[in-house]
Design a protein around this nucleic acid. Structure first.
Lengths: 244, 244
DNA sequence: CGCCGTATTGAACAAATTCAAGATCTGTGG
DNA sequence: CCACAGATCTTGAATTTGTTCAATACGGCG
C-alpha cells in the first residue's frame, strides 16, 4: 500500500532515531529522511519479503515485528545471519549492491516499509553526511555479523544461545523495551538456525539456562533472571553493537 | 615510511583495479584515488597492524602478502573472520566506524599502505560516486562474511575447508594468479581458525582432500587437482564474491 | 647440528546430531 | 465452548563428528 509522506514520517521515526544515535544529522537531513516515500507491507510469518538472488529496487525498513536474514546450503539447511527488530534497515546494503545474496523473511507477522533505491540514492548524492550515516549502519551490521561468526565458530552451544539472548536484550532495550522482561517471539528452531545448532540441542541449552535460573524464554517472552551471570556465561561485551 | 604520490600510485594500483571492477569511476575520480598519500609499512608474520579496540585514523590497503581479521573469545581461542589478499582494503569500514572491533594481523610478511581517514573522507565529501564505491566494497566484504557464517554454522568440516580453498582460488585468480596452482601461504592453524575447527581436524580434512585427489596444500602452495569435484564438494557458488 | 614452528598421527573423550516418540500449545471451525 | 489439526516443544537413546591430549616427524634456518 502506498502511503503519504505524513504517514511515512511516523513509520520511519524509529529508523531515524537509530540513525541519529550513531550519526549526527542536522534538521534538513532529518527532514529529508522523514520525507522519503515508500510502500507499507504486512508480511506473514515465514514469508520471504526479499528472495534469494533477487535484484532489488527497494530497501526495507522494519516497522514492527521480527525478521531474519537467511542463507542456506545446497542440502537446504538454513543459517540465520542477522535478526532485525523495529527500526532496523534490514537491507540498506542493497543500495550499493542490489543483488540479494541472502533472503529476508518475517519470523512473526512483520510490518515493513519499502523505500525505492532511487530515492535513497538521491539523498546519498546530495548529502555526504547522509551517505556516511547509511554506510555506517551497514558497517555496524557487519560488526554484529562478525561477532556472530566468532560465536558460531568458537563458542560451545550454551554460550552461543546466552550470547544471542544478551544481544537481543540490549538491542530491544535500545528501542525502549524492558531489558529484563521483553517480547522476543523467535521459535527454538529459529534460535537454533541463528546459533548454528540443531533445534533439539537449542532446546536442551535453553532448558539448562532456565534450570540454572539465568533466563527464561517461553511463549515469545524473554525474562532475564540473572543478567550478570548470563553476561559472564556468554562473555558478552556490548561494545560491538555501537548503541548509545 | 612516508611515500611520495608517484610511489603511492604504483602501490595503490591493485586497489584501484579492484574498485573499478565493481564501481565505474571516471578519470578524475581514478586520479583522486591514485593521488592519495599514505605510509608504507612492512609487517612481520603474526604481528598485529591494527589492535583490538584501537581507535584508528588510517585505513589499511594490502599491497602484498596475506592478512587476517581476528576476533577472539575471553578464553583466548581465535576466529579469523576475513582473509585479505593484495588489493584488498582490509578495514575501509574504519572510515565510518573508527573503533576496531577486530584486530588485523599479518599471516605472512605483508606490506600495507596506511591512508589517513581524513584524506578518504575528503574524497567521500567531494564525490558521491567514490562514496558509493567505498560503501560497496565494505558491503561485498560483509557478503563474504555472511557466506563464511553459513559455512561455519552449517557445513561439516571437510566442506568448510573445501569452500575456503575455492574462495581463495577465485579471489587470487581475480588478481592474476593461476586459479589451479597458486601461492596461498596460510598455515593449517590459520586455516583452522578461519574454518572454526581445530588445527588437528583441519589437518585430517586437508589430508582427506589430498587423498581424494581434489586439492593439495603444501608449503604455502595451493594446487587444485579436480576443480569441478572440489566445487561440488564445497557446494561453492562464486556469485557472492562479486568478481567480474 | 640442533632448534622451533609446523605438520602428522593415534587413542580416549566430549559435544552435538540424528532418529523417534510424545507432550504441549495455538488457532480454527463446528 | 470444545474438538481437532498443525506447529512447536520436550525427552531419551544411539550414533556421529569433532576435540583433546600426547607423542612423533618434518623442515627450514641460524
Amino acid at each position: 500500500m502506498a502511503i503519504s509522506p505524513s504517514d511515512t514520517a511516523k513509520l520511519l521515526q524509529p529508523w531515524l532515531a537509530r540513525l541519529t544515535s550513531r550519526s549526527p544529522l542536522d534538521e534538513v537531513e532529518q527532514a529529508a529522511i522523514l520525507g522519503l516515500t515508500g510502500h507499507v507491507q504486512d508480511v506473514l510469518p515465514n514469508r520471504d519479503f526479499v528472495r534469494l538472488g533477487e535484484r532489488t529496487t527497494y530497501a526495507c525498513i522494519i516497522v514492527s515485528g521480527l525478521a531474519g536474514r537467511f542463507e542456506q546450503t545446497a542440502s537446504g539447511t538454513r543459517q540465520i545471519t542477522a535478526l532485525h527488530i523495529p527500526g532496523d534497515p534490514a537491507d540498506l546494503h542493497s543500495v550499493p549492491v542490489p543483488a540479494a545474496s541472502s533472503a529476508l523473511q518475517a519470523l512473526t507477522r512483520t510490518t515493513i516499509v519499502r523505500i525505492p533505491h532511487a530515492e535513497l540514492s538521491i539523498l546519498v548524492d546530495r548529502s555526504p553526511n547522509i551517505a556516511m550515516a547509511f554506510w555506517r549502519e551497514t558497517v555496524v551490521d557487519a560488526a554484529i555479523l562478525s561477532k556472530w561468526t566468532l560465536n558460531i565458530g568458537r563458542a560451545p552451544a550454551r554460550q552461543r544461545i546466552a550470547h544471542l539472548l544478551c544481544e537481543m536484550s540490549c538491542r530491544y532495550a535500545a528501542i525502549g523495551a524492558d531489558r529484563f522482561d521483553l517480547s522476543f517471539p523467535a521459535t527454538q528452531v529459529q534460535l537454533a538456525d541463528a546459533a548454528g545448532i540443531t533445534n533439539v540441542h537449542a532446546n536442551r541449552m535453553l532448558r539448562e539456562l532456565a534450570d540454572d535460573e539465568l533466563v527464561h524464554l517461553k511463549n515469545g517472552k524473554l525474562q532475564i533472571v540473572d543478567w550478570d551471570k548470563l553476561v559472564a556465561d556468554a562473555s558478552f561485551d556490548p561494545t560491538y553493537l555501537h548503541l548509545p
